[in-house]
Amino acid sequence: GRHDIVEFDLEGQNLSLIKGPRRMNDFGICQCQIIQIDDSIVGVAILSYHDIQVWRREVNSEGVSIWFSQRTVALHNILNTLPRISETIPWNRLMGYDDDTNAIFLYMHNSAYMIQLKSMHSTKLDVRYSREYYPFRSF
């Protein structure tokens, strides 16, 4: 099926569907996360077997919204503990996103990682496998 993004306009009180970047539909199960790029630009991080892609949505000169590929980074360049990844590796999952720190959380090769999207710096987390994670930051 096709993956869309639901947009709610607070000012106009309108609900609409946005087509995501074409890459969101390359996989049966979308390993993607809506993210914030800068202050008012919506983006999508997409996890595949080999890389993370970051897409941004902008309005062109005709007023049409277009998705642009902002960055693609190979996972073995981000997560230096990973072997070269083959097509058959299962269980790579996006687990969550923290918009305050612009970090996504991944579960790969029996380990959890936090990845800063601007720097693509990764931190291995000391957690055990679970079906779901809910990122929470204490103040």
Rank of each mutant, 00 (worst) to 15 (best):
R23A: 15
N25S: 14
N25P: 04
D26P: 01
F27V: 10
G28P: 09
I29A: 07
C32H: 10
C32M: 14
Q33I: 14
Q33M: 15
I34Y: 08
I35H: 09
I37Y: 15
I37M: 07
I37F: 14
D39T: 02
D39P: 00
S40Q: 13
S40Y: 09
I41Q: 12
I41G: 02
G43M: 03
V44E: 08
A45P: 06
L47Y: 08
L47I: 07
Y49N: 15
Y49V: 00
D51V: 01
Q53A: 05
Q53K: 08
V54F: 09
V54M: 13
V54A: 10
W55R: 03
W55Y: 09
W55S: 01
R56T: 06
R57C: 06
E58L: 13
V59F: 10
S61D: 15
S61H: 15
E62F: 08
E62V: 05
G63N: 10
V64M: 12
V64H: 11
W67L: 09
T72C: 09
T72V: 04
V73P: 04
A74V: 07
L75E: 13
L75G: 04
H76E: 15
H76V: 01
H76W: 08
N77P: 00
N77D: 13
N77Y: 08
I78S: 01
I78C: 02
L79Y: 05
L82D: 04
L82F: 00
P83Y: 02
I85S: 02
I85A: 03
I85E: 07
S86A: 06
S86R: 14
S86P: 05
I89K: 01
P90Y: 09
P90G: 02
N92G: 03
N92R: 09
